[in-house]
Design a protein around this nucleic acid. Structure first.
Length: 110
DNA sequence: GCAATGACTGGAG
DNA sequence: CCTCCAGCCATTG
């Protein structure tokens, strides 16, 4: 692995997500320059439990604000619990104020 | 180096 | 509104 792999970049961006905010896989992929690699973002998260510091994967949802990756957590309910604990309203496995809590690395980090 | 995989996405039925 | 299909690209065996 040379320096920072695609994974490292993904983790780095996810760690920069402010508390009480969420983002989408596509947004991260687009920020990294690989807009079409939205799957890679999720794929990278698959190894998030294998790295340190831990990545706040619970702040990463799909474009619709759905907690698609909740089933990959130790407990499916853990993801929602984490978000609610940070002030993010979650209902029916999706972010309620997704538009409001949505955080774009492209606009924020640029 | 090829084939399979995946926590996605957007459009079509 | 819900379901299915094909494209997308990096990592792994």
């Amino acid at each position: 692995m040379d320096k920072e792999s695609f994974y490292e970049k993904v983790y780095d961006v996810v760690r920069q997500i402010p508390t009480g905010r969420v983002t989408s896989y596509g947004a991260i992929a687009e920020y990294l320059g690989t807009k079409g690699s939205s799957r890679m973002v999720g794929y990278a998260m698959g190894a998030c439990g294998n790295i340190y510091p831990a990545v706040p994967a619970h702040r990463v949802v799909n474009s619709a604000g759905l907690l698609t990756g909740k089933f990959h957590f130790p407990s499916p309910d853990l993801m929602q619990q984490m978000l609610e604990s940070e002030g993010v309203e979650v209902e029916n496995d999706k972010v309620v104020n997704f538009k409001k809590v949505f955080w774009r690395p492209i606009s924020e980090l640029n």
